[in-house]
Amino acid sequence: MNSIRLICYIVIMIGVTNLLRILPVTLIRKQITNRFFISFLYYVPYVTLAVMTVPAIMETTTNQIIGLIALILGITAAWYKMSLFTVSAICCICVFILELI
C-alpha cells in the first residue's frame, strides 16, 4: 500500500463519516416517513456491529473457544447494563487469563 493511496482512503473515510453526521442537520429537513426505510435504518447499526464482532472476536484469540467465552461473558455483562468500559475490560481480562492456561 503506497502512502498516497493510504492517505486518500483516510480522507474518504473522514469525508463520508462526517457527511453522514452533517446531512440531517443541514439538508434533510423533512421527516423520513417510509416505514420500511425507517425500519431498515433502525436495524442496520445492530446488524453491522454483530457481523463485525462475530467471527472476528474468535479469530483474534489463539483458540476460537477463548474468543467465544469472551463473547458470552461480554454479552452477559452488557445484558446487565454494565458500562462500555467495564464490558470491554471483562472481555480483555477473560482472554488474558484463558490465554495463560
Binding site: L49, I57, L84, S88, C92, V95, F96
Partner: peptide
C-alpha cells in the same frame, strides 16, 4: 491479544442493552 478484544467488547456494549 487480550487488548485486541476491547473493541469487540465495545461493540457488544452498544448492541446488547
Amino acid at each position: 491479544t487480550a487488548l485486541n478484544v476491547a473493541l469487540y467488547g465495545m461493540f457488544i456494549a452498544v448492541i446488547i442493552p
